[in-house]
Each structure stands twice: as structure tokens, then as C-alpha cells.
Amino acid sequence: MADPLRFHYKVDGSNFTSAGEASVEVKKKLRQLGFSPETIRKVSIAMYEGEINMVIHARGGDADVFVYPDRIEIVLADTGPGIADVDLAMQEGYSTAPDNIRTLGFGAGMGLPNMKRNSDSMRIDSTVGVGTTIYMTILV
């Protein structure tokens, strides 16, 4: 199989207000590549939520997007505090975001559930004190 197209982004953990730039960039690229609006929407939402999580919880990280003819894979890797209880974190409404983040409209405990809902498969590798890597696949 041909090598996938790969887009790499550094997610800046210090600048909360500009968070989402990588997702907006990916959306633009997928649109240029001619993917359907539904696919683009799923990738955009899944990636944005992940990007926001990295900024809120992990001082940023790395985002990689691999574009295959039949699927899009997103890998979000950070060296943040890790997730102690992944099952709990996956519950809608559960959040450990600080109050200043909530006043900006985040921290509703919808991030990880939104990522799962918009991807066809999702895996979370997390070790407390080491970091978190999330793999998401969206079928085209």
C-alpha cells in the first residue's frame, strides 16, 4: 500500500486561546483533498477535543494525522500527568479541568466522549506521571 500523507503539528501548551489551530489546519487540508463533509467533521471534532485536552491537562504535545485512501488516523501524544482511571475519564460529564478553563466554555467532561463518538476506533495508552497517547481511526 502507498505511504500515507502525514501531517505533523506541535500543540503549544502555553497558549490556550490559540488552541485548535492544528485542527483547523487539518480541516483545510482534508477539504482540499476532497473528503466528504461528514468525514471532515468527524476528524475535526475528534482532533480538536484532543488538542484542547493536551493544552488543558498536559502542557501541549504532538499531533500526527495520517491520511490513507480508506481511513484517517490521528495520533495525539503528550508527556503530561497521564490518566489515572481511563474508564472514569470516558464518562460524559466527568472532568478534572480547573475553574479558569470552565469559564472559557471547556471542562464539561465531553472531550473524550466526543472523540470516541466521532471515531470508528479509539485507543488510549496512558501512564500516570509519564504521559498519554491516543490513537483514533476514522474510516472514510
Binding site: 490556550f16 486561546t17 490559540s18 488552541a19 485548535g20 489551530e21 485542527s23 483547523v24 463533509p37 467533521r41 471534532i45 480538536y48 477535543e49 484542547i52 472559557l104 466554555g105 471547556f106 464539561a108 465531553m110 472531550g111 466526543n114 463518538r117 466521532n118
Partner: peptide, 28 residues
């Protein structure tokens, strides 16, 4: 006003009514 909620539920071509005024609304 909860941005994740809006991201997950607002649809294309809708008017999004909110009282959130920070930069993140543009990305959403």
C-alpha cells in the same frame, strides 16, 4: 455555551447563539 457540547451537536449551516466571547468560539 459549553464548547464541547456545541462541537458535538451544532450542525452545518446553523446559527450558533452563545454568550461566549473568547477566541475559542472561532475555532469551534
Amino acid at each position: 455555551d459549553l464548547l464541547s457540547w456545541v462541537m458535538g451537536r451544532a450542525e452545518s449551516d446553523q446559527v450558533w447563539i452563545t454568550i461566549m466571547s473568547n477566541q475559542n468560539i472561532v475555532a469551534v
